[in-house]
């Protein structure tokens, strides 16, 4: 009995020794920050008040209701939604089309994939600098059309341009995944469709698209989750205090509160609200994935049962 306890102890000690770094890391850089931020979001800690006191839910209530102080709060959420509306469908459709084209037995598939992937390995700051200069009044685009439009400082074009950058930058990665999903579609489905007299477009619509539905869902959810977090591009291009109101997304506003206003309690509250939104979407994603997995398992069981029945 004693030997068993000793062995148990030793086994546990070994296990915990292996995950000790993880536990320390997890507590210091995941758990503690979240707790500190949660506590601070209930105080009035800011540059103006470095000696904070507890204020309960005031920060949250003020954020949601006080339009005089947090004028941009709701409009920044709206901007974020607008950004998602501009990027997610465009990106999805473009990915589908490009992947379908690449999947149509053409030469140089690998070459195209490589070229499209370059933005994904470009340092984001460098890519933003490149685009910023391309879209400048004296940049590439204006040179080509010999115009003089300040795309990034114009309220009506700025967000569209940033959305375009994201779609352009993410295409290579998306195509890579979509293409492999398309390659996994059972070829006999195409053959069957062809027998029914389906053309290329009909095959795409009735075989390819349903076949890659899980991938489309995956893109939809990850697109929404990353859409909520958009803001880095804007910080690189405009700094944290831009006058261009149409690019002030939620995360940008969070940075503005943190960096320009040094209002840490409100920035923390905004972090938590963002977390809540994203959590909802993540849970939806899990649900969908699990539903898929369950469906697959059921199918498998059914097939097995049928096979067994046939044997009998």
């Amino acid at each position: 009995m004693k030997a068993y306890t000793k062995q148990l102890l030793k086994r546990n000690a070994t296990g915990y020794a292996f995950i000790l770094p993880l536990l320390i890391y997890f507590i210091v850089f995941q758990l503690a920050p979240m707790i500190i931020a949660l506590v601070i979001s209930f105080t009035d800690y800011s540059l103006a008040n470095l000696d904070p006191s507890f204020v309960g839910f005031d920060n949250y209530i003020e954020l949601f209701t006080n339009k005089a102080v947090y004028q941009n709060f709701w409009s920044s959420l709206l901007t974020t939604f607008l950004y998602m509306l501009l990027t997610v469908p465009t990106s999805m459709i473009l990915t589908l089309i490009v992947s379908a084209l690449l999947n149509s037995k053409i030469k140089g598939e690998k070459f195209f994939k490589t070229i499209f992937y370059i933005p994904s390995v470009t340092v984001s700051v460098a890519m933003m600098v490149m685009w910023k200069q391309m879209l400048a009044p004296d940049g590439l685009i204006n040179q080509i059309f010999s115009s003089n439009i300040d795309f990034l400082n114009n309220e009506s074009t700025a967000l569209v341009m940033i959305a375009l950058m994201s779609v352009w930058g993410g295409l290579g990665y998306n195509v890579l995944i979509m293409l492999s999903a398309m390659k996994n579609i059972d070829p006999s489905l195409y053959e069957a469709a062809e027998m029914d007299g389906a053309g290329a477009f009909q095959k795409f619509l009735y075989v390819t698209v349903p076949g890659v539905m899980p991938t489309i869902f995956f893109f939809l959810v990850t697109g929404l989750i990353s859409g909520f977090q958009v803001g880095e591009q804007m910080v690189i291009i405009y700094g944290t205090a831009t006058q261009v109101g149409s690019v002030r997304t939620y995360v940008y506003e969070m940075f503005y509160q943190m960096r320009e206003m040094s209002n840490f309690s409100v920035a923390s509250a905004m972090s938590y609200f963002l977390f809540a939104i994203i959590l909802v979407f993540t849970l939806i994603q899990f649900r969908l994935q699990n539903a898929d997995a369950i469906k697959e398992r059921r199918m498998l069981k059914k097939i097995k049962r049928e096979a067994a029945n046939e044997k009998n």
């Binding site: 540059l47 700094g239 205090a241 960096r259 320009e260 206003m261």
Partner: peptide, 11 residues
């Protein structure tokens, strides 16, 4: 980046 860097430094 100046103003925001300074306010970070102050806090």
């Amino acid at each position: 980046n100046y103003n925001s860097a300074i306010s970070t430094k102050f806090t």
